[in-house]
Design a protein around this nucleic acid. Structure first.
Lengths: 118, 118
DNA sequence: GTCACCTCTCTACAGGACGTAGTACTACCC
DNA sequence: GGGTAGTACTACGTCCTGTAGAGAGGTGAC
């Protein structure tokens, strides 16, 4: 996988937040802060789907874009990818476990427990 | 933090593997596969220390480079950074916990347990 | 002392990713 | 049939990275 640029991430965030597939125009309307040309949004949407982050389906003349995977899946994949980088996965995992805050450690513990019960 | 390029990572790997601080020449000797100019290695070492990945100390005319942090720390930080990207950390963590393989889940569980006992 | 050599710093350049957008073509509505 | 919306294609500046040369300054050999 590859990382995302800043604008790419903003757009992914919009699409992840929305549940329905959006057109370029709709996405553009949802980025108020920046004053982007419509073609800019279209270009980025196109690149994102080319990279596999988005799926698109026709809606009349327009395309509707939606995330190919959930944000959680993306984040989890990034984390696994980072983990793959090390020679000593155990050490990295241990260090990671120590670094997450209390509540999150709880979440992790719970998820792992459920995992064990399945 | 920022990601590393391919050559940058190779060089970090060498320095992480070694326990002693190395000079550019020594690092260059340890990358056999590629036939790099000495200045190339020096440039990359310089960039890495400028980015904070390496520390360097004088040794006569030469610099000796060593990692500023362990690879585990780096990996853990990357993982945390990925985690920061999501709005719903819990969901991402849960998904991550489900994605790690059995033995690693065990490691995580153990680290978390020790954490709880402290 | 001078020459060869090592290492450093500075500068450079090509390729790719990303932000940004214009242009030209097409299809639809009224 | 002209405005409008949407597309595909093309383009350009910037930054990062891989790669390396040129020039400066010290060091040891002779």
């Amino acid at each position: 996988m590859k990382g995302l640029g800043e604008l790419e991430r903003s757009i992914m965030d919009i699409l992840w937040a929305e549940n329905a597939p959006l057109t370029a125009r709709e996405v553009g309307r949802l980025i108020e802060d920046r004053d982007l040309a419509p073609t800019t949004v279209m270009t980025v949407l196109d690149r994102l789907s080319r990279k596999g982050f988005l799926t698109r389906t026709r809606d009349g003349r327009a395309w509707r874009y939606q995330p190919a995977a959930s944000r959680d899946a993306y984040v989890a994949e990034l984390m696994l990818e980072a983990l793959d980088m090390t020679g000593d996965r155990d050490a990295a995992l241990t260090r990671f476990a120590r670094a997450v805050s209390g509540t999150e450690a709880e979440i992790l513990r719970k998820a792992l427990t459920e995992l064990g019960e399945e």
